[in-house]
Amino acid sequence: MATEQASVSVPHARGSSRLREWQATLVSLLYLLPSLVAFSVFVFYPVVKSLWISLHADNPFGGTSDIYVGLDQYKNALSSPDYRNALKVTILYTLYTVPIGLLIALTLAVMANLRLRAISIFRVAFAITIGVSVAAGAVIFALLYNPSTGVLNYFLTRLGLPSVQWLTHTNTALWAIAIGTIWLGLGFNFTILLSGLQGIPEELYESARIDGAGGGRMFFNVTLPLLSPTLFFVSVISVIAAFQSFAQIDVLTKGGPAGSTNVVVYSIYRDAFFNFHSAYASAQAVILFIILLILTGIQFKSLEGRVFYQ
């Protein structure tokens, strides 16, 4: 409305400001162009293509075919006991890794945020797994879990506990991988949480102290609420990462024993690149994507009210 009125009194200015606006938009799009091109080729096109593949038949000679089969691949996946097992394993794996990983990282971050001499040494130690790739970390865990000479079993027996068939028993294999994953993720979670803690203004602690708040009350009334956006961010990232874990499973168990570590991502990989069922694998991927979207939505909904923004 405002521009409409202005244009009546100064008709000339309208045309040139419009031109300038278009020019600004055009220049802005040039800034976005490199990213937009890359996203189009390697993100948006593949998503559409995956949907397309998943609605078509598999080509028994590899690659994809153009025989439309509707939702058959999805029905096959959802009714297959293997895929249901993979979904169950994925959810269990997420439940094993995310809450424990967050809790340990938070404890470490709170400790490392104290003003102590030489604290920076501990900070480097707690962040160290950022520098450890998943593949290298998994190979080290293979050594620790080794059934005959493994150190973990040695510690257990020294404590008078029975030794565990870490990677070779269906009851323990998923836990074994989860423990390695928690360790690998600690550095990143710790670093983000520590930076969140450092973003909390010192004055808030001081005024709480003047009000007579003790360490515990300070943590629950000042630290946790102010850290909640960071905790929320880390929890969303961790769930997404858990749903995409691949290298540790490929290195340590290859989905075994008896499918007990066969997460959906591994099942997709086997079906797409070994069994040449690209369409079936694409349907599995789309189902996983939808589940992930719903889970993230639930996370946003349930935590949103509790997250405190300054």
């Binding site: 390697f42 593949p46 293509k49 995956s50 959906v264 991502v265 690209s278 694409s282 991927a285 979207l293």
Partner: peptide, 17 residues
């Protein structure tokens, strides 16, 4: 929105590309 898209969904077409 690209943050929400897991690579499982893109990996097969990207490999073909």
């Amino acid at each position: 929105s690209t943050l929400m898209i897991p690579w499982e969904v893109t990996v097969i077409p990207n490999y073909q590309t």
